Computed example of a mutant assay.
Amino acid sequence: MGRKVLILNQDYSALSICSVPKAFLLVYLNKAELVAESSSYFLRTVSAEFPMPTVIRLHRYIHLPYKGVMMTRQNIFKRDGHRCVYCGFHGELTLDHVMPKSRGGRTSWDNLVTACKRCNTRKGDYTPEEASMPMRHRPFKPSFIMFLRDYSGATDDSWMPFLAKREKVS
């Protein structure tokens, strides 16, 4: 049961993603309400059948002071589609600083990209322009909603009304 459920805050803003068993438990314990359910899948026990949640809403508002995407190696790989931004290869991936650290480049969303070992070695201590290695796309910091919608794996169609809302720029 690898399906995921979108968790909404009390004000219907996207909060997180969890597993189906966790979502069912929150609904069963009356800590959340079922907003959308799967039309083709059900949770079955020996004596009962329950709708499988796809979207739930918490009964209490959860205040999150910072709702952003953590900059981790795996999140940068996800943002770049697990492909080298220089050649498009999808094996032996590393992180590359667009502006090399030795030349003042920072470790940030806007300066880190996914690169295969071959391209990273070839680029060395140069910028992509100096190494004549154009990038397929420029690095950027994804918003929280964008990350949930585009990079969290399989999303359900029932999530879209909650993830398509206007995003706040962070």
Rank of each mutant, 00 (worst) to 15 (best):
T94D: 08
T94M: 03
T94I: 03
L95F: 06
D96C: 04
H97E: 02
H97Q: 09
V98H: 11
V98E: 04
V98R: 11
V98Y: 05
V98L: 02
M99W: 03
M99G: 00
P100D: 02
K101H: 13
K101G: 15
K101Y: 04
K101T: 15
K101R: 14
S102A: 14
G105L: 08
G105Q: 08
R106I: 06
T107P: 01
T107W: 06
S108A: 15
S108M: 03
W109I: 12
D110I: 02
D110R: 09
N111L: 12
N111E: 01
N111P: 04
N111T: 04
L112H: 09
L112S: 07
L112I: 15
V113C: 06
V113T: 15
V113L: 01
T114N: 10
T114I: 00
T114D: 10
A115Q: 02
C116E: 01
C116I: 13
C116M: 06
C116R: 14
C116T: 13
K117Q: 13
K117I: 04
R118Y: 10
R118I: 11
R118M: 05
C119E: 01
N120P: 08
N120D: 02
N120K: 07
T121K: 13
T121M: 06
T121V: 03
R122F: 01
K123Y: 03
K123M: 06
K123L: 05
K123F: 02
K123A: 07
G124Q: 10
G124E: 01
G124N: 10
D125I: 07
D125L: 09
D125S: 11
D125G: 03
D125H: 10
Y126A: 08
Y126T: 11
T127H: 10
T127P: 04
P128T: 04
P128S: 05
E129H: 13
E129I: 10
E129C: 00
E129P: 01
E129L: 12
E130P: 08
A131Y: 00
A131C: 08
S132R: 11
S132M: 07
S132C: 09
M133W: 04
M133L: 15
P134Y: 07
P134R: 14
P134W: 07
P134D: 03
M135G: 02
M135N: 06
M135F: 02
M135Y: 08
M135R: 11
R136P: 00
R136G: 00
R136T: 01
H137A: 15
H137Y: 05
H137P: 09
